[in-house]
Design a binder for these strands. Sequence first.
RNA 1: GCCCCCGUAGCCCAAUAGGCAGAGGCAGCAGACUUAAAAUCUGCACAGUGUGGGUUCGAAUCCCACCGGGGGCACCA
Length: 977
Amino acid sequence: MSQTDTSTAIESAEGGPDDDVPFRYTNVVAAQIEERWQDYWEAKGTFHTPNPVGSLAEPDAPAPGSKFFLMDMFPYPSGTGLHVGHPLGYIATDVIGRFRRMCGYNVLHALSYDAFGLPAEQYAVQTGQHPRTTTEQNITNMRRQLRRLGLAHDPRRSFATTDPGYIKWTQWIFLQIFNSWYDPGADGGRGRARPIDELVAAYESGERATPDGRPWAELTGVEKQKLIDDQRLAYVSESPVNWCPGLGTVLANEEVTAEGRSERGNFPVFQRNLRQWMMRITAYADRLVDDLDRIDWPDKVKAMQRNWIGRSEGATINFAVDGASRAGAGDGDGDVIEVFTTRPDTLFGATFMVLAPEHPLVDTSVPQAWPDGTKDAWTGGYATPREAVAAYQESAASKTDLERQVEGRQKTGVFTGTFAINPATGERIPVFVADYVLMAYGTGAIMAVPGQDERDWEFAERFELPIIRTVQPPDDFDGNAYLGDGPAINSANDEISLNGLGVDDAKSAIIAWLQSRGVGEGTVTYRLRDWLFSRQRYWGEPFPIVYDENAMPHAVPEDQLPVLLPEVPNYSPKTYAADAADTEPEPPLARVPEWVEVELDLGDGPKRYWRDTNTMPNWAGSCWYELRYLDPDNDERLVDPEIERYWMGPQPQRRTDDPGGVDLYVGGVEHAVLHLLYARFWHKVLYDLGHVSSEEPFYRLFNQGYIQAYAYTDARGQYVPAADVEERADRDGTTYVYDGQVVNREYGKMGKSLKNVVTPDEMYEAFGADTFRVYEMSMGPLEASRPWETRAVVGSHRFLQRLWRNIISERTGEVVVSDASASDDTRRALHRTIEAVRSDMESMGFNTAIARLIELNNHVTKLDVVPREVAEPMVLMVAPFAPHIAEELWSRLGHAESVAYVPFPEVDPQWLVDETVTCVIQVGGKVRERVQVDPSSDDDTLRELALASEAVQRSLGERSVRKVIVRAPKLVNVVPA
RNA sequence: GCCCCCGUAGCCCAAUAGGCAGAGGCAGCAGACUUAAAAUCUGCACAGUGUGGGUUCGAAUCCCACCGGGGGCACCA
């Protein structure tokens, strides 16, 4: 049994200077070097990146032709500070940026802060401090922690979304969206946003007809404005929204979990009709799906976006309500129920219909009494359809989405007392109301085809409804509904027969028929909803909108931007009990009447207006920040077009339909839908309006993994400090012990409450930033998540220590490299390493690149003297990972300039050829011998060599040789008979 | 329930296009240095690739099934 202290406690790599080795690379030396070089970079502006024009251009040094725009998903400046998991992506992008710079690219890399948001507001509510104060403190602290990492950012390009100069443009973009409409016919049917003035002009000229046909001039001012406002890309809508009383605000669909709770805080969310700002993202649904094919993103993220947008192609079909069945139902004669289906080919099998409980026809079409033929199962036990339907609607309305799901798969519903006519068969089919049909999807009504739909099958069985198969299942099919392909059956009337057609052909045939009859057409629907854009919070961008006395919205003039937040008595919106569904949002800004009421001249003389008291969601700031990096000081326009084209314009040499965008965007996969979808949408609007030349914001996306950690709980389930847990290994396995008690190990996040946080500051102190950087990059592939292990960090420290020792004497501090030439062997090792490292860098295989560097360094360690011709390229190759030690060694090796722009070492191909190569000789696939051969040996030579081998003969024994496979020069496989 | 990704030494991870299972690191063991320890250095050992089939001259790699882990979607018509 062995007992080892494998705790995560941090023991400093070294104490004070050692008398014997006073010049060893220790944590103390590392800290001195690192802080000195960080000051140097800052003072010299080493990482200032030139723009082609504008305030950041360098007239004497034009921006290089090859550029690389590198971005991290920007952080929210949290008050708790960073743990070691946070900088992983920042280190990786820094390594890439430094490498690219050494390869001659003009690299744009900086980091900014997404500083609006709930935590700062909640902290402000608790402490009474203004969120701006705490946000700024947090940013300062985070900048300090990150500066110590030695990131090669251009500090002139760093900003926060809360800066007035940034808010101005966020609000400006909002007004661009507000002042646009989507013309679906533009650009050959692809559609494009156009200025709203062009829509007004089209009405004025009569080119476009008003909905009721009256000439534009005859509409009242309010009518005109309503007509226009309803078509804006940003519009106010009174519609069902996600109201979260626990948070006191409404939320976007993307912010509500599948369980019907808020993603933040996990409060219940209710559907309420409220007046809110919406963004017409649905207009872009097709382009958002289609353009995924033009960008280099992980398939997983593309799949999530496709899934979220949920484009499905099918048909809408009109079913006439059977008037005769509607005795006493009121004035609804001639009603049609419009359904959406992806399987129009199954129309002949539609034996009933289902409306969502919220469907408007449910209220108008219900007759007084149950018609003849009503089965008992259909009535829900009520005497009349009205009672049954009303009761069902009420019970559906009282349930949250979660409850509807939990109550699960058992289908419920009642007959409405109405019949509709199947347009294909002419049959009267009953119309039900059931909550398995959702008002929010398609038309809120379905034709039910139990033969080809599991849900409809279930419902049909429960309510004794007929089932007609219209696709012939295979002979061995023993399920219920058949969803697969097959020949159509039972699908013919006097005008059309689908029988025998496959699903796809049957779809086209029936759509053509429906169209010719005028009762349906091919359609596309989407799961994506318009984006609810207003929040009832304080700490966000105010809307640059005022309302007139008719409550009509008007844009605040551009020259009055930004609209800044007023001081308020209380930063919190009114929040309610989590389940208080019938409450109303009450934003904090509404409590400041002197801010809300303004006098403005919007062209018709000074008048009184009222400001919008909502704020924008946290996503607004991150929807366009990639553009701000390009031209961070511009106060005249969003971004200079020449600068945008230089950094983000399409690159046809990359792909023919290249949409442009950031060259590499690194961040976690958690933003796969929300941020990345919203940002793409805004970018496309800006493209349509001619403000940018790129069609996509982020050309290449890379998802880094997460650094995870172990946490330990004691017998009571309380977390104990992970740093003080000991690992004990014996024959029965491994146990974990804290304070003499066995504790339970969990694997997951790093967090204060889990008592397993390790901070970068602790790593800087114990080892230095370079060691920390090398360790994080060497732990594994960037895309993989892996556990943090403090005790393993020392390995990276030893590597840097050995590198240092190979160049600097630990006793004298003198440079010990030799100008004598390196041996052939060493040169081969060097050039093999250069080749491998270059290729690993290109593919972001940083862990393997570091392994190759360690290998080379270990080779050099064994030499009696270290040749300069190896030491220098080795330092340069280490530079992207451990820039401070590289700068220091480079300067001690006699170079005056920073390593940042020194060309990365080049491979000399002559040193990649080995003198001899090991040829493996197998018999039947098993290795029997290894021989050193000339790398240029041909097949015949190797075959003879193998057959002559004693080991091969011994292994063959009595067997004869069937054939010999030769893969010169590395392998020969002798196959026995 | 459906879809996707991943299982290689005690641990984190390598293995161009199917061709010697091991590059690198941690931990372990032995030794050097030390009064001792830490730190450092030198050396050593450790798995046949989750399981079971299949294809192949040859499988960690390709195919099928299962097991285990992670993620996404989930009445979307």
